[in-house]
């Protein structure tokens, strides 16, 4: 564990807490893409299949439970909770995510470390996580006024993976033989997808104006 990875995990956790805070307190998910939330739940389920048979540390175990629990409860809130579901804009959240899921699955079958079910699922979860934000970014472009919590949520989500990139650089130089091409490339693609959001987010923060993404 290094400071970049811990900061990354804490940033990731806080992004989820910001979203849960928004949904639970103001009972609204306006501007949030249910498609992206469902993709994240799938990412965690396929990533943590080994939660019970490969024990790394208490920290690892607890964080996996938190990520699984929070992502599933967010999907539940947006689908089942009357008030929250009413605030969900399904006419705008129209990204057909089969165009994301299937290619990631095929790619995971072709490019992986080992052709076993768990390893392919783990690789699939990496590819899926890299592009899972797309429905949310598309929805942000369609959402006229993006509220602060939604902007903070997406920003923290992008920042966590950027911190993981620093973690991989650190581990590459401190741990001989630490090479994770699949993880690195997926993580780089994921972070690059946030590039223009970061640009407009920081601009809106600097000029103290409402965040707006050009359509």
């Amino acid at each position: 564990m290094n400071v970049f990875r811990l900061a990354g995990d804490m940033t990731h956790l806080s992004s989820i807490l910001v979203l849960l805070l928004k949904i639970h307190t103001i009972k609204s998910c306006a501007g949030i893409s249910l498609k992206t939330q469902e993709l994240y739940a799938l990412v965690f389920i396929t990533r943590y299949l080994d939660i019970f048979d490969r024990f790394t540390s208490i920290y690892n175990f607890l964080m996996k439970l938190i990520f699984l629990g929070s992502s599933l409860s967010i999907v539940w809130y947006m689908r089942r909770h009357k008030a929250v579901h009413r605030s969900y804009d399904k006419d705008q959240d129209t990204f057909r995510y089969q165009f994301i899921v299937l290619p990631c699955l095929l790619l995971a079958l072709v490019i992986n470390h080992k052709l076993t079910f768990k390893e392919v699922m783990w690789t699939f979860s990496l590819y899926l996580e890299a592009v899972a934000i797309l429905p949310q970014l598309v929805l942000l472009q369609r959402t006229r006024n993006i509220d602060n919590l939604t902007g903070q949520y997406v920003f923290l989500l992008g920042a966590y993976r950027a911190l993981y990139l620093l973690n991989w650089v650190y581990r590459y130089f401190t741990e001989p033989g630490f090479v994770r091409w699949i993880t690195w490339i997926a993580g780089l693609v994921q972070t690059l997808l946030y590039a223009d959001f970061f640009y407009y987010y920081i601009l809106s923060w600097k000029n103290n104006v409402k965040l707006e993404l050009p359509a």
Partner: peptide, 10 residues
Amino acid sequence: STKEHSHDEL
């Protein structure tokens, strides 16, 4: 093939 990867990261 590469050695068994320990998925030690989240």
